[in-house]
């Protein structure tokens, strides 16, 4: 697990009261966290704040897994 994936999973678990130990990079984060679009926007805000980056939400199209989201963060960092 990369450092970004680890931090992303920690943040997501904290935001949505999930157990970080049960989350893995390959999981679909919508399914794993049981969230919908509006909560995904909250997560996006948390990530932008945490990593001090901007992620245009159109770049999240087709991004489903924690790993893919972490890669997107790394690309913008």
């Amino acid at each position: 697990m990369t450092a970004t994936e680890k931090r992303l999973i920690e943040l997501a678990a904290e935001r949505f009261s999930a157990d970080a130990n049960l989350l893995t990079p390959g999981q679909d984060f919508f399914e794993a966290l049981g969230i919908k679009s509006i909560q995904a926007l909250d997560l996006l805000t948390d990530l932008e704040d945490e990593f001090d980056i901007e992620i245009p939400d159109y770049e999240m199209q087709g991004v489903n897994t924690f790993a893919a989201l972490a890669a997107l963060i790394d690309k913008r960092a």
Binding site: F30, I35, K36, S37, A40, L41, D57, Y58, M60, Q61
Partner: peptide, 8 residues
Amino acid sequence: DDVRPYLP
């Protein structure tokens, strides 16, 4: 019924 309709 997409879970992400707010994402353009």
